[in-house]
Design a binder for these strands. Structure first.
Lengths: 192, 192
DNA sequence: ATAAAAATAGAACAGACGTTCTATAATTTT
DNA sequence: AAAATTATAGAACGTCTGTTCTATTTTTAT
C-alpha cells in the first residue's frame, strides 16, 4: 500500500508554490495539474477536493507549529531567555516554511467554515502562547505594558510581516535579520 | 454633466466592502451589482472593467496617503516628535480607511502589471518616507540600529498588522491602542 | 418641446471553474 | 498467471466568470 506517497507529495509541493504566489482563489486545480504535467483527475485521486488539498498543506507544515513553539516556551532557562528562544524558533520555522506560512495568511476568508475554523484555531493557539509568556514576564516585572494582548499582536506583527518582505536572495544573512527583529521586539527603535 | 457622481460612489462603497471581505478574485462584478441591486452593465457604465474599479478604490483612499504622511514628516517640531506624529497619522488614516487599506494588501499578486506597479509604487513611497525619517533620527543619534530598512519594515509591520486584528467594536478606544502601538514601536516590550 | 447624453436592464458569449464519470494503463497482491 | 488495487487520462457537467451588445428609460441641455 501507500507506496506512491511520493507522487502525492510532489503534487503538494507544486500546489504550495502556486497557492503561495497566486492565492487560493487565484489557483485552479487545472493550474496545478498543468504545472506538474498530470491530469485534473489525477489531482482528485490524491485529494478529495480543493479545500482538502489546502488543508493537507496546512497539516504538512503549519499545523505542528504551535506544539513546537510551546515546547520551547516551556523549556529551560530564565523567562526572558526562553522568550527570546521562542521568537528565534518562530522566525526560523516561518522562514523554513515561508511559502506555506504565507498561504496560511492569504485568502483565509474564502475557505469553507471548516477551513476557516482550522485557520483561526491555529492562529489563536499561537497568540495564546505569546500572551501566556508575556504574562509570565509581566509577573517578573520585565514587561512595560498592561495590555498583554495588544502587545502580543504587535510581537506577532513583526514576525508575520517579516514573511512579506524577506527575500532569501538578499544580502543580509537570516541570522542577522533575526537578531535585528528580536532586538526590535524587545527594545523598539529608540536608543536606551 | 457629472451630476450622478453620487451613483458612482455608491457603487464604489459597495465594492470596497466586498473586496475587503472577500478579496479581489473572490468578488465578482455580479456580486457587486447584486449587492447594490443594479445590473451588471450598470457597473460597466461607471467603470471600464474590474481592475479599473479596483484602481478607482485605491485612488479614492490609499493613493493620497504618502503625500499626507510626507506633510507631517516634514512638518514642525523636534525630529522625534515629528516621527511620533507620523506614526499617529498613519494609524489614524489606516483606521479611517480600514477596509480600503486592507484591500491594498490583499490579492496584489492577482492584479495586472499596471495594477501591480501602482501598488508597489505606493508601498515604496511609504517605505521611503520612513527610511528617510529614521535616517534623520539616526543622525541625531536617537536610533539604535544600523539597518534602517529592516527597522522601517518592522515599524510598518506593526502599523499594517494592526489592521488585521483591530475591531472597532472592541472595548479599547482607538487612542489607547494607538498609544500602545507607538510605545511598542519606540521602546519595544521590555521595561527600561 | 426636442435633441442629446447619461443611466439602466437584460440577454448573450466564450472561457474558466470545481467536480464527476467512464475507461484504460500500471502496479501490487494473491 | 489471475485478480485486485492503484494511478492515470480525457471527456463532460453545470455553474460562474469578465465582458459586450442591443435596447430602453431617464435625465439634462438646447
Amino acid at each position: 500500500m501507500t507506496k506512491n506517497r511520493y507522487r502525492r507529495d510532489e503534487l503538494l509541493e507544486i500546489a504550495i508554490d502556486l497557492f503561495a504566489s497566486r492565492g487560493y482563489v487565484g489557483t485552479s486545480i487545472r493550474d496545478i495539474a498543468k504545472a506538474i504535467d498530470r491530469s485534473v483527475s489525477n489531482v482528485y485521486h490524491y485529494f478529495e477536493n480543493k479545500e482538502e488539498l489546502w488543508l493537507a498543506i496546512l497539516e504538512y507544515s503549519v499545523q505542528g507549529l504551535p506544539e513546537k513553539l510551546r515546547t520551547v516556551a516551556h523549556g529551560e532557562g530564565e523567562p526572558m531567555e526562553r522568550f527570546k528562544n521562542l521568537l528565534k524558533l518562530h522566525l526560523e520555522e516561518s522562514t523554513r516554511h515561508q511559502r506555506e506560512t504565507k498561504i496560511f495568511f492569504i485568502d483565509e476568508e474564502r475557505l469553507s467554515p471548516k477551513g476557516k475554523l482550522i485557520n483561526k484555531r491555529i492562529q489563536k493557539e499561537i497568540l495564546d502562547i505569546y500572551v501566556e509568556q508575556l504574562r509570565l514576564l509581566q509577573s517578573h516585572n520585565l514587561v512595560r505594558t498592561k495590555h498583554l494582548k495588544i502587545l502580543a499582536f504587535n510581537v506577532l506583527a513583526t514576525i508575520n510581516w517579516f514573511l512579506r518582505w524577506y527575500d532569501p536572495e538578499g544580502d543580509m544573512s537570516k541570522e542577522e535579520i533575526y537578531d535585528e527583529i528580536i532586538d526590535f521586539v524587545l527594545h523598539g527603535m529608540c536608543k536606551k
